[in-house]
Nucleic acid binder design. Structure first.
Lengths: 210, 210
DNA sequence: ACCTGAACACCGTTCAAGT
DNA sequence: ACCTGAACACCGTTCAAGT
């Protein structure tokens, strides 16, 4: 079963292997050495494909963005607000599948091809409704910030839950100093992400949709 | 000048030392061993103060939040929108002082005392204007997401600039596939952060301010 | 209680050398 | 061009032992 002389391996194979380790053992466990071992390579060989660990991490971020259906987001036969809702929800869902990958976004510039095209799609959508470019730029920046921030808070909370699961549960809890926060939590609000986005779009004067 | 038998060191001293290394050598260079060395301690002694590196990182996040003037943000004699603008700008400024600390926010739950009080202050502000708690909860979540996301994008961009400075400048650049993005960048828009926040608040029906 | 010393099981990255 | 082996300078964390 021993393979013949190894031909090669693609950058995509490496990114996939990295995500596998990510899912199995968490984000901190993704190492050049570990990924190399999984692929039957020497750590040194990895530097043939990526110049550094950071470069690999940025490729991972790109892969998350690359799953977005940007074609659908550009379809002018659907109201822009509707398309944007879908696009934002998709991005959120993709990061929810890779909890922990959010940290990678914060650790480097969002300047990959896919990430840039994502921004371009937003600008195109806003201007297509007649919004001046300067305003569309602000709307795009705001939407990017809102979506990324919401995703980050999701991931941070998911990490908290994971930790709490194997932590000893306290026998008593401090009387809360945050009564409103506690009351608000009981209200649930699963649609908070969508609602916030819609309010933001309202603020930018985007017409409502049926 | 040799000190007498070492009495001890506070958790705050350790957090300060960690930030010093952060500023000097970047976020990746902050290590338990490095912080210990700076304080004249053995790495093992660090575990007397923090149970893990993660615990230290969360304390660093708390320290960034602890500089906020939450008292001013609760002053009812000023319009809530005005107070919120100031609070958001302050938080952004504090993270701009510690570029790279943003990653730490994403790497764990935002459940420190200061961070929770920050959220409580937002809820209080929104409800004080007569907004129902359920709506205030959504507005709070949206503002937290927007501010955190904007700060994250700031930090990521700052990291990009820092890298670009010592990278070889390319002799030629690919023709851009993103004409709108390029055109939008020329428009600048230094007030994008404030504008986006105001539009978000507009969307949530917060009354405008003089 | 607080600290040290030694050790375990890892890291990212570089460099000379092989084919 | 792509890969290996050996090495450098580090990591976080644990454990037994000292005072």
């Amino acid at each position: 079963m021993k393979p013949g002389p190894r031909r090669s391996i693609s950058q995509a194979d490496i990114v996939d292997a990295a995500f596998e380790i990510f899912e199995e053992k968490g984000g901190d466990a993704v190492s050049i050495r570990g990924v190399a071992a999984r692929l039957g390579l020497t750590p040194t060989a990895m530097y043939t494909y990526f110049t550094s660990k950071n470069a690999l991490q940025r490729a991972m971020v790109e892969q998350v963005f690359s799953g977005l259906d940007l074609a659908a987001a550009s379809d002018p036969s659907v109201a822009w607000r509707t398309r944007l809702r879908t696009l934002a929800a998709d991005l959120r869902a993709r990061f929810a599948e890779h909890p922990g990958a959010v940290v990678l976004v914060a650790s480097g510039p969002l300047d990959g091809r896919q990430a840039l095209t994502f921004g371009e799609t937003l600008l195109e959508g806003f201007t297509s409704g007649g919004m001046p470019l300067a305003d569309a730029a602000r709307a795009t920046a705001a939407v990017r910030a809102y979506v990324l921030g919401a995703i980050t808070l999701d991931a941070a909370a998911a990490g908290a839950d994971a930790e709490a699961a194997d932590a000893p549960s306290p026998l008593w809890t401090e009387a809360t100093q945050h009564p409103l926060t506690e009351a608000a939590e009981l209200l649930g609000g699963d649609d908070a992400f969508a609602t916030g986005l819609d309010r933001l779009l309202d603020g930018f004067g985007l017409p409502p949709v049926a």
